[in-house]
Design a protein around this nucleic acid. Structure first.
Lengths: 223, 223
DNA sequence: TCCAAAATATGAGATATCTCATATTATTGT
DNA sequence: ACAATAATATGAGATATCTCATATTTTGGA
């Protein structure tokens, strides 16, 4: 982890201004943190002392279950907050957050800003909006996972994460994210290839029939 | 649906004061609504014009999928908000909310209070706290549903909803809530009875070995 | 550069869960 | 009080998904 100082910090503060999210002047309190790919930004089960706001890169929130299984709860992208649970709730089992690419965040220290943030209607409104969307998304993922087989959820995942017509996600990550075994994931990928929806190219897949995948994905949604 | 007026309304305002959730005087705007068991408080897919706060009773949030399957997203209890998505997000596919017992709510009309509420730090802080808990709970349910078989999730559900040592939930509701088929739910209940954890009494079940159920439920949790 | 670890791949057998068909028993509205 | 509807119950067969074993390939670090 690297903390940007002086000119570099200043440059980021100017380029990615988040002043509009606050009524009070936030700039002086902001630290700018850079994390390398695969680095843990927050360790599961520990106490975090910052509210984070992502300005570059992306990250993943993980939880480890008692049976050793790991779940990828959610992806965090540019302009997302994380660490807000610790801000609002005195007692909280902290989830692990890992950078999936090089990631740059604003880190807002609790000890200097908690009181100010919790009094700031502008900030709280934005945070509530963010949380309401997040909670809706989680609810959607929850009910979808209960109501549809992997075929549908994977089709959606492929379309969401594909880079143009090429899909490049790591299978192991997808297992944690969709909550299926590696074995079963590969079965369904094999099916998609058999049916001609996808074509394997080295360790990537080319999307040949986006409409077919779309049909499978569409049944998930009504919102 | 019945709207309490005059003395009855006044009595509820005094008995269940929520003034502490707001900086501005909210009482004058509050309507007190009573819904009968099984009545729909919000119709799925329609626009709601109130923020609700439950003061008596409980309710269920439902969503209908394109394949006709219905999911029970969550239970709503005393002191919970609902309708907050519509307050914060201009565009939102509204979920259905159904009273599961006689339910009394404060209903805060958007047209009179939206602006005030969105400027009120005290209210927004409470709302953000509520949403953060809700979002954490949904995340937990999501990952649990992916990581554990029905056996564990049902044990938890039984313990959570049992009335003393008697469990009385309707199977059909539980199917929608845990996202399993009626057939499979009964298989697992039969297993629990075989193993002596439960004993069937008419249409209820008596919990004979709470510790065994607890063991099954405990592996879900680390938070 | 090389080794250990991680990721990919595939088979075989088990099990968790679903669908459908069919009865019986409550509950509810008129 | 009766008919319609909802809830409960159970069997049989299908399928979605898991576990485990084993092999190959890729990748990151000493």
């Amino acid at each position: 982890m690297e903390i940007y100082k002086n000119e570099k910090r200043q440059r980021y503060l100017e380029e990615y201004s988040i002043g509009y999210l606050f009524t009070f002047p936030i700039e002086e309190f902001l630290e700018v943190h850079e994390y390398k790919r695969d680095e843990w930004i927050i360790q599961e089960g520990t106490r975090s002392d910052f509210l984070f706001y992502v300005i570059e890169g992306k990250a993943k929130i993980y939880v480890t279950h008692q049976n050793g299984k790991v779940s990828l709860i959610n992806f965090i992208n540019k302009d997302d907050f994380f660490g807000e649970m610790e801000l609002l709730n005195p007692i909280y089992y902290t989830k692990g957050v890992q950078a999936s690419t090089k990631t740059v965040c604003f880190a807002i220290p609790f000890h200097r800003c908690r009181a100010k943030m919790l009094e700031d209607a502008t900030f709280l409104r934005e945070l509530a909006k963010f949380l309401s969307v997040k909670s809706t998304q989680m609810a959607a993922k929850y009910t979808q996972s209960l109501s549809f087989p992997l075929e549908n959820r994977l089709a959606d995942f492929i379309l969401q994460t594909a880079d143009g017509e090429v899909y490049k996600e790591k299978h192991v990550t997808v297992c944690d994210s969709l909550g299926v075994s590696y074995r079963h994931l590969l079965y369904v990928f094999a099916q998609f290839c058999d049916k001609g929806y996808l074509q394997k190219e080295g360790r990537h897949y080319r999307i040949l029939q986006p409409n077919e995948l779309n049909g499978l994905a569409r049944v998930l949604m009504n919102e």
